[in-house]
Simulated assay, not measured.
Amino acid sequence: MKNLIGILLILGSIKAGAQSSALTIGDSLYASGNYSKAIASYVSVVNPNSKTFLQIARAYNAKGVKGSALEYYKKSIQKENRQPIAQLEYGKLLLSQLKFYTADTVFSSLTNQYPDNPEYYYQLGRSLQLIERKNKTDSTSIASVSTIELPETAFAKAVQLDSTHQKAMYDLSKIYLAKRDYTNVEKITSKALESDPENIKMISLQAQNYYYKGWWTEAIVRFEKLISLGQSTSFIHDKLGRSYYQKRQYKKAIAQYEILLESADDDWGLHLTLSRLYAFENELEKSITSGKQALYLKDLPLDDVFFTLGRSYELKRDYKQALNYYSNALKENSNNDDARYGLAVAADNYYEDKSEVLKMYETYVNSLDKSKITPYKARLAELRIQELKRQIFVESNQ
């Protein structure tokens, strides 16, 4: 009998050793990135515990087999329901697979169990964002189980618990920017950049915040910073170009739009903008070339392109061509007041019969909406009308 007991003890010890060896080998294989063999080693364990299931889930996740990873995360948590690390990994994987209702349940549970952990609130905010988007497009969607209803609230709680949580600060800033809450965007992005001065996402949000506020100088500094950090997107070059435009730094604006044109030569808007910018820099041939390219590419209506070409020819003092393009602009859009004024100015420089010119200026002034503030051009037109009337009067008496 004693011999039998001894044999059983030895067999039990061998079995336990084999179990331990399988786990050790599995961990070693997992650590070295040999995930399939690691899974085979873990699966050979006869009575797997929550840690074994967790490692199998991690291995499946690492090799991209998301369905099996979710299955084993769930098994691990069912074995031991108080595993915050397993629950966090499980919830994040659920989010990546757009299973946001289940993720919402996981992160709601974690925030209730661990109310001082900012990461759980951040992940809950991500779940709530996806549910919010689903609700906007699907009336049959399911409500969140969380006591926190808004992603903004969850992100704000994460930031409150950790004022350096960059991801939560970024997502919270994005929400405020969408609401045009510029003050809070400025506050959060500035705080985030204190701990990570080269956070590209935060610099981008701050640049956009200044841009939409119309703080062109500040926006320029931030967009230039992004470029210095190796960022080069059409969004950055476009917004930087527009900021330069607003500050009348036309050469710098041209440089940005020429970069954009390299990858979008069929964009009539870029050609039209460059036509205007070249005109400001008195590069009139380039202005005309870009304007004609815009005219070729753009669908109707074309009055803005005709007007820009008219302006370029006017600056070139080719008043005949200017008259032609201003006239075409008015044919396209009879309410284009700028083209009507340009037509009068070109005619003033081209026609000898000033009585016809006088009529053009008067037509322009009379076409303006009297309920609006009189534009600078209208005041110039009225002065010119008075001068022409005196001139015509004198000539008629002579």
Score class of each variant (00 low, 15 high):
K2R: 15
G6N: 15
I7W: 02
I10M: 06
L11W: 00
L23W: 09
D27E: 13
S32M: 07
N34V: 00
Y35P: 00
S41F: 03
S44D: 06
V45Y: 01
K51E: 15
R58N: 12
G67W: 00
K75D: 01
E89K: 14
Y90C: 02
Q97E: 11
T111D: 07
Y121T: 15
Y121I: 09
R126Y: 13
N135P: 04
T140I: 10
S141T: 14
I142S: 14
K157R: 15
Y170D: 11
L172C: 13
K174I: 06
L177C: 03
R180P: 00
I203K: 10
A207Q: 11
Y210N: 11
K213A: 12
W215A: 14
T217V: 12
T217D: 11
R222E: 15
E224A: 03
L226M: 07
I227A: 12
G230F: 12
T233R: 07
Q246M: 05
A253L: 01
E258A: 03
I259R: 08
L260V: 06
Y278S: 12
Y278C: 07
F280Y: 15
E283L: 13
K292Y: 14
Q293W: 05
F306N: 03
S312A: 15
S312E: 04
A322S: 08
N333M: 06
S334Y: 13
N335I: 06
Y341F: 15
L343G: 08
A344C: 01
A344Q: 04
V345P: 02
L358R: 06
T363P: 03
N366Y: 11
I373Y: 10
V394P: 08
